[in-house]
Design a protein around this nucleic acid. Structure first.
Lengths: 228, 228
DNA sequence: GCGATGCTTCGGTTACGATCGAACTATGAA
DNA sequence: TTCATAGTTCGATCGTAACCGAAGCATCGC
């Protein structure tokens, strides 16, 4: 009874709908202000403020004040992974909130998952990288091959730079909409960044969905084909 | 706001201390009755009953009635993984409940994690299997090698039988006490079963800890050496 | 300096859920 | 049948936490 980590505390932190919505929104990777978060939580700023304080005390959030704003972000990638894994679990049990609204399809097609690409396109990209021999999949682990390193260089991603960070290069992340893995880790981040830099896609204002331009769409599908 | 799976529901389910304790106890893998669970939760049976009903409605638990008892177990392995991952997360944030009681050290040395070995011994076993070339570790994924298949056969584990199940053979599972990976999956289960069958170790009544006999301890350490 | 904006703190209300005693159902034993 | 054990359902109590209005700080633009 008194053994092990206290799972109830963080469960309770995530267990409030307003807080859960805020956390989910922050899984989008960008920092949000208290007022914005109050919006996504459907509550007033006062209430949001107390919620945010609790989340911060619990170690799930960090804040950075900038002028008269306070920007909140998830404390680190581990929090993002926890949230995503809970989403995957909830989706599997049919605990859905979505009356399939207008934004839903876009979200399933391509969205941001902390800092990398998720949704149909995310899964497709990983499948394609594996099929082309750029990434080795062993069990549920992923590893970049030499061929992959060369291929990535050709589209402007220098893997050497990424290796210097302590963060793992490749990591598989379970996609809640597709129920299959997509690519996370510093490489996943670098790939998404490059798409955004190239103008192939852009992030939307308040949602987690990623919008591909017609041109970007073509380029993406050409670069990551799926075998027939 | 209305997009994605409802993470708050399961958060709330886990967020109650009594329920969290029950779930943690069930991570021990064996089925427990409502009264036993009331015990670990520190509540009366009436209260436990309502909690258990909620957990079942939420899809986290299943019950099987046998005579006048009702045996509760985690609904499936996904639930166990979710709980364990939350434990790992909570441990990392220092959300500990343990005033390091008497049972704590035993729990850190060897315990059961749903159906496989965790704790110091679990981590050691995986390390040793990797060092000896029985298991390939790529990224955070694990794969059994041909050599490993042979070695396992020699200690009485027929991998062929395990492959027939849909469940993955090797899976890495983050250990909350060691903060490193141990071996899960059907192979992890088979290994622990064999230790128990051989009488090297036994499960304890109400706790998740695994007790090795002096002889079993010797055999285990001989079989899974760590290089100096 | 002044007002406007972003956010927190305080106080009081409200609602929900955890809790348990008591009564009720079901299975097993004698 | 009767008694005992395991469990659920009901009803009532109680505590806590979510919530918002109002007031209080802090920072910016002017």
């Amino acid at each position: 009874m008194k053994e092990g980590p206290d799972i109830a505390q963080i469960g309770a932190l995530i267990g409030d709908p307003a807080r859960a919505n805020m956390l989910a929104a922050l899984t989008g990777g960008r920092a949000l202000t208290a007022t914005e978060l109050a919006g996504v939580g459907g509550i007033t700023v006062q209430t949001a403020s107390t919620h945010l304080a609790k989340l911060e005390a619990g170690g799930l959030l960090t804040q950075r004040k900038q002028g008269r704003h306070r920007y909140f972000t998830l404390a680190d990638e581990a929090v993002a992974r926890l949230i995503e894994s809970m989403m995957g679990f909830a989706a599997g049990r049919g605990h859905l909130r979505h009356q399939p609204g207008p934004k839903e399809p876009a979200l399933r097609k391509a969205r941001i998952c902390y800092d990398h690409l998720a949704g149909d396109y995310g899964v497709r990209m990983l499948d394609s990288l594996i099929a082309s021999g750029s990434i080795d999949a062993v069990g549920d682990g992923l590893a970049l091959t030499e061929k992959g390193e060369g291929d990535l260089k050709r589209i402007g991603i220098n893997v050497g730079d990424l290796r210097s960070s302590r963060r793992p290069l490749c990591r598989s992340c379970l996609d809640w909409s597709e129920r299959r893995a997509h690519l996370a880790g510093s490489l996943g981040k670098a790939l998404l960044s490059s798409f955004l830099d190239k103008g192939w896609a852009r992030r939307t204002a308040e949602s987690r969905s990623i919008l591909f331009s017609p041109e970007g769409d073509r380029q993406f599908l050409r670069l990551f084909p799926v075998d027939p």
